[in-house]
Design a protein around this nucleic acid. Sequence first.
DNA 1: CATGAATGAGTTTTCATTCAT
DNA 2: TATGAATGAAAACTCATTCAT
Lengths: 197, 197, 197, 197
Amino acid sequence: MIFADNKRENILLAGLKLFTARGFENITLSEIQANAKVTIATFYRHFGNKEQLVNEIYRDMRHLLKSKLAAALSEGESVRVQYRELWAQMMAFERQYPGVISFLENRHHGAYLDEHSRALQRIPQPIVALMDHMHRDRATKNASPILLAAVVWGTFIELIKLRSQEHLSLSEEELWVAEECTWDAIRAIDTEAGRSN
Amino acid sequence: MIFADNKRENILLAGLKLFTARGFENITLSEIQANAKVTIATFYRHFGNKEQLVNEIYRDMRHLLKSKLAAALSEGESVRVQYRELWAQMMAFERQYPGVISFLENRHHGAYLDEHSRALQRIPQPIVALMDHMHRDRATKNASPILLAAVVWGTFIELIKLRSQEHLSLSEEELWVAEECTWDAIRAIDTEAGRSN
Amino acid sequence: MIFADNKRENILLAGLKLFTARGFENITLSEIQANAKVTIATFYRHFGNKEQLVNEIYRDMRHLLKSKLAAALSEGESVRVQYRELWAQMMAFERQYPGVISFLENRHHGAYLDEHSRALQRIPQPIVALMDHMHRDRATKNASPILLAAVVWGTFIELIKLRSQEHLSLSEEELWVAEECTWDAIRAIDTEAGRSN
Amino acid sequence: MIFADNKRENILLAGLKLFTARGFENITLSEIQANAKVTIATFYRHFGNKEQLVNEIYRDMRHLLKSKLAAALSEGESVRVQYRELWAQMMAFERQYPGVISFLENRHHGAYLDEHSRALQRIPQPIVALMDHMHRDRATKNASPILLAAVVWGTFIELIKLRSQEHLSLSEEELWVAEECTWDAIRAIDTEAGRSN
DNA sequence: CATGAATGAGTTTTCATTCAT
DNA sequence: TATGAATGAAAACTCATTCAT
């Protein structure tokens, strides 16, 4: 989302805000018009229709998320450190762009998303990449990287939902415990301690 | 959802199917009419409006899920066995009622849900109950039961999404690996092996 | 309105009450059902449809009004006394059946009235009869009896409206002043006192 | 009702015509659409809903009537002349805007009128003003101006109804007799001639 | 390039009336 | 005779989109 054009920028921001809060179908163009402070005709010059707007927002946000998380993967560091950094970036993203991850997850199979949008991976690629890396190093349990990534991403989303939808206050500290939980979930654990019934 | 009344039953089933597949807002009453093979006016005899229908379906399904999972918690068994059984029930539920869990998760903060529906816990109570039980026995990591339950439920939902939305085929075996992952995620791990950076 | 049948009576009374208060179109059969404490099917056994009900009520009330006012015209009395008695009966009717005259006036050209109902004179016949009588005796101004009756009836309705619709409190005494006004309006006035400009 | 906007004007005129003829509830938007030669959606651009339309028409007409009658009250003239002029204006109004007075009277306590509309006096204020003026000059019977106005207005409405609803032909001349009747009704009559029983 | 007015196609909802039992 | 369930037809209203200026 490069905000060269001011009107275009306003529309995108208004769309993000409104769609995030109340979904695609419940938002009318006149709300977008009012919120973005442009006329409807201006809207139509910049976006072919309402669906194109939501698709553009969706893709912008997916790419933004991906690039933010990619920054966590620094070759030089141990996977443990990289994982911790990944988790930190996920939390930072949610802090900086509140509601966006929920938007992405909730809208993911909306009828209005086009093929191009749907083709984007839902689980952010850097998470899968790290899992893959660890998997090749035999540092993870013997499971496919995508499954391991699902544990990580699924847990994270769940925590976000708890906070935003159910007004559960989770401290930073608690979220870091969750990081540790998921680390234990994915890593190979050599001890037999846990295998007991 | 007791299916004494045939027309009512048809409407509920049609609603579940349609709302699950395409969301609340995108479904029109005439689609429900066509699918349930009743007239729209008959629909209005049984339900005050479209929102009441979706609320009733939502609550029925939340209760069904809860009761199915509650069956997994048998006092006599070890927590490891109970956890395994819980996971089995979750998978069984998804198998028996495909799409229902996605429906519940996706609709959970729809604008159309009434207070009564919203008041229902999103994370199934039996999961929290088991976490709570383990927590009191100091069998879990030092985290609140709800957070531990979030790891479990979040992971499970993520796997379901991968299968249904992204057509990723996950074998039964792989899902059981995930069960083991989450077990490691929640349980207290006494060895220091995993703490290394 | 002969109330031989209890159910029929209940329906007629409910209809009168509801139609009077809120008009024909705004009343649903289920309100009538609820108010009359009969089922809709029972309604349909007694009345062909909603319109037949309102027509029957309308005609019943027109006849009732007419017969009450007719009682005022006693051959033996002077026309002044008869007029006074007529006015008394009009007030008594409004007191005994509040809202009914408004109902009759307001519904008089409703689309739902059938030819039979419409054929009924709106201005109660006894008023016209007395005007006619006085006219033949040259006791009135030189105007058609129907016009004179219009002055009387129009004034009376207006007073009723003031009381019921605009919550203007008019004392009995004031209403009798109106009676005197209308008497002056209709009677021949021999003096030239009033002719001055 | 300033008819700057053509579509808006058409809708108002169509509404007046249709509501006058057949009441509020019996008129559908598609009839308005057909009559005003605009689409329903255009209707909704100009008026929030059907009720807003009828309220606007109602108020416009009340104000129009009031201003026309106010023109009759010229300070310099005797009250007799003013009264005659008032009556002339009332007849002129009915001639120029046939049906409008009936519309105003019949709709006056419709459920669809809002508070603002209901607040408008039903009996045109200039009539009351003249009665008040005469009353202070002791030129009327000893009755409140509003009651005297009711005699005038009630009689006039009744005559209109006779003509329009019951197809009674009343000549101009006869209507002027009614004017004289009502003048006798309201004015103080000093002779005792009329008091005889 | 900008805009306000216009619209078609669709949506939910209501209700008098019928009908099988 | 009595009734609850069923329904057809029509109602008000919405909104994304277009178009003349």
